[in-house]
Amino acid sequence: TLLTVHDLSFLRYPGTFVPALRRYLERVVPRSIARADLVLADSAHTRFDIVSLLSVPPVKVQVLYSGVPPRFQPQPEPGEAERIRTHHSLGERSYVLSVGTLQPRKNHVRLMRAFSQLTNRPSLQLLIAGGRGWLCQDILAEAGKHTDRVRILGFVDEADLPALYRSAVLFVFPSLYEGFGLPVLEAMACGVPVVCSNASALPEVAGDAALLVDPLDTGGLAKAMARVLEDTDLRREMIARGLAQAARFTWEQAARQLLDVFASLHP
């Protein structure tokens, strides 16, 4: 049996989960791992968590990275900026983008508070693309305090995401914990500079292409966003590094590795 474990956030940040779901995961995940012949982890950090938190033998856990689909690339389609702005009623204002389900682990409340500190750019707006998850009441309440500058778009169709990324001036992903963090690579692949958390698997995924910040430091997050927005040379360097970093993660590579894993299980 081959099992994939995306993350152990329910153990690292139990307070960000509905209690019933957390109890279910605490019961089912260790049992599933015990039954599996081999466990695939989304990142080296997730592998470390599986081994250290659940006392799984290291030889039983391998890392299998995800890939970035080809549609996430920097070249815009004709008329896409106008289409995406019309579809989401964005107007002509520039925007900073964040993508992720509305739940506490994604750290949206601190993101909105940090963004509100960018007072020298009053026309800049923050867009948060993601459907409502559990325990999202505080996120919605915070958004209600910043209605002039913050918009929660709700769930955005996969087909619209590349254009939404490409029209952003900055992508921000301050998550408390990620087993991988695919939106970081999607944004990089679309040619957008990235500010993200320095926690969990995100430094592993972002490499040297993003500005990394402590996700608990609201002021530090605000300063990082301001730095990327104001420094043209830094932006240019981050975009180039981001494109190179995203290119390292392909589904073709993941598929080849997965076939090798299958072959090792059935020699």
Rank of each mutant, 00 (worst) to 15 (best):
G130R: 06
L153T: 03
G154A: 02
F171R: 10
N120H: 14
Y177S: 08
G133H: 14
L182W: 03
R151N: 06
G133P: 06
G133Q: 12
L140T: 05
A129N: 01
D148W: 11
R132D: 13
L140N: 05
E178N: 09
A159W: 05
H146M: 08
H146S: 05
F155Q: 15
D157F: 04
Y177T: 07
T147I: 13
V169K: 13
S175E: 06
I152S: 00
Q137V: 14
F171D: 10
A129S: 00
L170Y: 02
E142D: 06
D160R: 02
Q117C: 12
L176W: 02
G144K: 07
L140C: 06
R149K: 13
I139D: 01
C136M: 06
E142S: 07
N120C: 10
E158S: 10
R121C: 08
G179D: 11
R151L: 10
V150T: 04
L176F: 10
Q125D: 10
V169S: 12
T147R: 13
Q125Y: 14
R149M: 05
R151D: 09
E142H: 08
L118W: 14
A159P: 04
I139Q: 03
V150A: 02
L140P: 02
P122Y: 11
L118S: 14
A141R: 15
F173S: 00
D160V: 03
G144I: 08
A163F: 09
R166V: 07
Q137I: 06
Q137C: 05
G154Q: 04
Q137D: 15
L126P: 00
Q125I: 15
G130E: 08
Q125W: 11
F180G: 09
Q117S: 12
A168Y: 00
F180M: 07
G130A: 11
Q137R: 14
G154E: 08
A163G: 07
I152G: 00
Y165Q: 03
G131S: 07
L164K: 01
G144V: 09
I152V: 13
Q137A: 15
E158M: 07
I128M: 08
G181W: 14
L126V: 07
D138L: 09
V156A: 01
Y177P: 05
L153H: 01
Y177N: 11
S167M: 09
Y165W: 03
H146V: 01
D148T: 15
V172M: 04
D148N: 15
L127W: 06
A141G: 12
P122S: 11
L118F: 15
A168K: 05
I139V: 09
A143G: 14
V172L: 02
P183C: 06
K145M: 13
Y165K: 06
V150P: 01
S167A: 14
R149H: 14
C136P: 00
L182H: 01
G154L: 03
A143W: 08
G181V: 13
A129H: 04
P183S: 04
V169D: 13
H146K: 04
L127M: 04
C136G: 07
A143C: 11
P183D: 07
W134C: 03
L153V: 00
C136E: 11
Q117W: 03
L176A: 00
E178T: 12
F180A: 07
R121M: 15
R132T: 14
L124S: 13
G179M: 13
L124I: 13
K145V: 13
A143S: 13
L176E: 01
F155S: 14
V172I: 05
